[in-house]
Computed example of a mutant assay.
Amino acid sequence: MRVYSILLFFGLCLALGACNNENVNERPQQKYDIPAIDQLSQLIAKSPQDASLYADRSRAFWEAELYKEAELDAEKALALDSTKVEYYAVLADAYFDNQHSLSAIKVLEKAIDRFPQAVPLYLKLAEMQNIVKQYQEGMLILDKLEKIQPSQPDALYLRGNMLRDMGDTAQAMESFQATVEQDADYLDAYMQLAILGDKINAPYTVSYIDNALRIDSTYEDALLLKAQYYHFRSQFEEAEATYKQGILRQPMSPNLNYNLALMYLELGDSAAKQTEKAQDFFTKALRHFDNATKFDPQFADAYYYKAIAAERLGKKEIALKEYENALNMEVLLKTVDPATVEAAMARLRS
């Protein structure tokens, strides 16, 4: 009932141009102990007919994840002034994040009818439709936007996201490529090209990652992706150098430390017959697993593999402690079955 009542209310607002201010969002002013919100509430008390104040407070509520309140203020802003295109976007965001996606989409569709040249409305609508898997509808919106503003980079990127989510990797990559041709500094498009290219072993995958790092040399996802590119292809020297470079740029990254440690553990197991070399790899693995848990104390899988590295080094007490740490946060284990941890602990205690 809530969704349909919202749509009915909003439809009436659009039909009449504005709603009766006295029937919308009338509630006692209250303190939220959030400075931005409370300050806006004071201003609203002095200027209750200022639509921009309600729009601003709606955004503040939205940022505080108070979505019901954000909805009410956005509705009030539109009731006071339905000529501001940005107020429709504010209301759509509030509806969408309060799980009223149908209402959000309807708001944007009506807004586009009223403001057919407002590019941000098309982009926001297409993004929401992609999230709720209305791919065909989203594609139609992007087609309409293409007629208004051809080769708009954000639209090309959104089209690539939709094609990717629909399983059309080749077309998605073409759209992401078109994005960076229009905007050579579109970091997210380079990352999507790298991720998809990595999956299909496409040429120039590393160059896509390097372009992302050209834009932001400390971007952790790109640093990790490049190291893993070499790691997963058994190019261990390149992988080690890239992991270390990444850690220099992001020294407190649990993920970079964890993945480098996994590689050292793998290399240690492969060099088992060369005891001194294997021990060196296990020692390095233990150090970087320790860094991973230091920088993220809830990294359950890192505790498990840290225990394995310690066990390989003959440090049974440390290994048992780390297995216990992993088991104590078993709900956070992502790649390890708790039964596997229990079996390891039983083995050490026997």
Rank of each mutant, 00 (worst) to 15 (best):
A155I: 06
M162I: 07
L187T: 01
R114L: 12
N259I: 00
T179Y: 02
A261H: 06
A36P: 04
I308K: 13
T293C: 15
E137I: 07
E71N: 07
E146Y: 14
Y135T: 00
S47A: 11
K334A: 07
M345G: 02
F236G: 03
R164L: 15
L333V: 05
P120T: 03
P28S: 14
A55F: 11
M345F: 12
R159Q: 14
L43C: 00
F232I: 05
E237W: 07
K294Y: 12
P251H: 05
W62K: 05
A271W: 12
L78R: 02
E330R: 14
A155C: 02
E86G: 01
A178N: 08
Y323D: 04
D154I: 03
I131G: 08
D290R: 12
T205S: 04
L224F: 10
Y67P: 02
L265V: 04
L265F: 00
I141F: 00
G268K: 10
D154V: 01
I141V: 09
I308Q: 08
R59Y: 15
Q117N: 13
Q279P: 00
A184G: 10
L121V: 00
K84E: 11
D210A: 09
G167S: 04
D81L: 09
Y88F: 07
L163W: 09
Q274S: 14
K144G: 02
Q177V: 08
G246R: 05
F10M: 15
E276D: 14
A89V: 06
I112T: 04
Q136E: 15
D73A: 03
Q177L: 15
P150A: 10
Y88M: 04
Q117R: 10
H100K: 10
A189V: 01
V206S: 00
L12A: 11
L108V: 04
V180G: 08
L163V: 06
E220W: 10
L108I: 07
N161P: 09
R312Y: 10
E317R: 10
Y88H: 01
L72I: 08
A64M: 06
A55M: 10
S350R: 15
L163D: 05
I148M: 07
L256D: 02
S5H: 13
A77S: 01
V331R: 03
A292S: 09
G314V: 05
L225P: 00
A319Y: 13
S217P: 04
F115P: 00
V24A: 06
E181N: 05
D183K: 13
S58K: 07
F176T: 01
D296C: 07
Q29D: 10
L193M: 15
V3H: 12
P153E: 07
Q30G: 03
N201D: 15
R114K: 09
L78K: 01
D198H: 11
A15W: 14
Y230E: 09
L12F: 14
K277N: 12
I34D: 03
P153T: 02
A64F: 03
I215E: 01
L102E: 15
N98C: 08
R287D: 09
P150W: 04
G167W: 11
T205Q: 06
E330K: 15
A92V: 04
M173G: 08
I247E: 08
R114A: 12
M252D: 12
T242S: 09
N161T: 01
E324P: 08
N23D: 11
R287G: 00
R57D: 11
